[in-house]
Design a protein around this nucleic acid. Structure first.
Length: 192
DNA sequence: CGCAGGATTTGCT
DNA sequence: GCAAATCCTGCGG
């Protein structure tokens, strides 16, 4: 189970997510286990918000964070298993002008840096919650996997519980991934 | 029915 | 570097 979610998370790196005329190449993700992960929204069992994660995989789980930002996950667990992978950052590879428009004048490498910025660049909102990944709203292509030696792993960001599990994965040295600040001195960033 | 907190980002002290 | 913005979700009474 945990092996499976890690495999799924790593496999999403390098994949491309498209909505409308904007395409993002995913460079940073975080894995969330199902009911066994205290940091997951699925931890307390199915709720109106999290029930989408308990359904079939390959759909989007979108939620509103801090009352103002949207974050997008790919549901990966089999039907009944509430695992999901949070999309934390990416590189805009198509529709850059549209993305710039939505993000208002930030440097290109920051267009989709951070989970809420990524959804903003793609124009993803709660409307896309539950959308299937083979269209028509969003399309995911997992055909450009990142070699394992080019992937780093570390503790998850912004998580209060279970922050010890190295379930954040990113493309090593990719400019669209930030060296995150609030990690007091966790021994992260070990290339695998 | 009311309360506390959150998988964040941005701007200013 | 720190604190505010802002509202929905989940839990307790």
């Amino acid at each position: 189970m945990t092996d499976e979610i890690e495999t799924q998370a790593r496999h999403l790196l390098g994949a491309t997510l498209t909505r409308g005329d904007v395409t993002v190449r995913i460079t940073e993700v975080e894995a969330y286990g199902g009911t066994g992960d205290p940091a997951s929204h699925a931890f307390r069992g199915p709720t109106p918000r999290s029930e989408i994660m308990f359904g079939p995989p390959d759909v989007l789980y979108v939620y509103l964070s801090y009352g103002m930002h949207y974050c997008a996950n790919v549901v990966v667990g089999a039907d009944g298993d509430a695992s999901a992978v949070l999309l934390r950052a990416g590189e805009v590879v198509r529709g850059v002008e549209t993305a710039r428009d939505r993000r208002g004048g930030v440097p290109d490498v920051r267009l989709a840096r951070g989970p809420a910025n990524l959804t903003s660049a793609l124009g993803i909102t709660i409307e896309q919650n539950g959308a299937t990944l083979d269209g028509p709203q969003v399309v995911l292509h997992r055909d450009a996997p990142i070699p394992a030696e080019a992937v780093s792993a570390g503790p998850r960001v912004g998580v209060s519980r279970a922050a010890d599990v190295p379930w954040r994965f990113w493309v090593t040295d990719d400019p669209t991934v930030s060296a995150y600040r609030r990690s007091p001195r966790a021994g992260d960033a070990e290339p695998l």
